[in-house]
Design a protein around this nucleic acid. Sequence first.
DNA 1: GCGACAG
DNA 2: ATCTTGTCGC
Length: 307
Amino acid sequence: MSPAVDPDAVARPKFLPDPALSRAEMESLQRELAATATFADDHDLDPRAVAIDEPADLTDGVPDPRQETLPGTSDAGGSAAGNSDAPVVVGIDQAFLTPDDGEDRAVSAAVAIRGGDVIEYASAVTPLSIPYVPGLLAFREGEPMLAALEALDAEPDLLVCDGSGRIHFREAGVATHVGVLLDVPSVGVAKSLLCGTPDESTDGRPEGWRTPIRADESVETASAGGGAGDAADAADGDTPAAVIGHAYQSRQYPNSRRVNPLYVSPGHRVSAATTVEFVAALCAGYKLPEPTRIADAYADVAKRDAE
DNA sequence: GCGACAG
DNA sequence: ATCTTGTCGC
């Protein structure tokens, strides 16, 4: 047959968001993509290695990228932060330009963090092809995200996306979509639940609390995960439904129970259990993990500059 | 037909 | 996501 064809060279363009696709085609592509995704740990990252302890101060804009240690500037003191061997965590978020003249455009912002320090920012402005449709987010925001990530020099060891990953009707949320296209470990962080069912009520939980989100009738389980045997479908009476993510209470006020949890799920090459650990390690006192919190702020800056 | 749903 | 001031509570 066709000799020496690089699978990636074929697979990558195949799943690129395309405005010409019908809804059924997009859904079909998502099923294929989910079958390609790995919902098991396939990386070298220890949650402790990506942990961020100090929240960035965003009251006066975004933090300056940490200047690389210059050749002559020896850092003999040995500060723990800024180790250039630490993994690079990239947070990404989108903002939108109001249809001033009829064409919607997305502003995508990426922030690279290493050893708790911002080392680089990148952004891209992209025309939007399709409207927002629950379940098809990747076909609206995927292209902008890829554009921003391509503009980034840093190579992500872990990608933190806004929105769901495996918590998705076809287990192919944007975190999974982008993770697979770039074949990089990724996790999805959503502020509300798209589908699936929490094991326990999420009301008024203390900081650090978590509960599994399992596939329900609305989730087509592809059972494509990399590991040994994923759980079966939700409809299987016997086996418990697959855990597709977790609700995670990243922040809570002592007495009143007002903060809603985060809904975190594997994007690609990360298990559901490790996903919560990553997110927990990346939170530094605010509801959102630092990478997305800073990406949020930078998206505003990029948006302002684009207007 | 109704419900329900990331950003 | 976006349109938006003050304001109640930690």
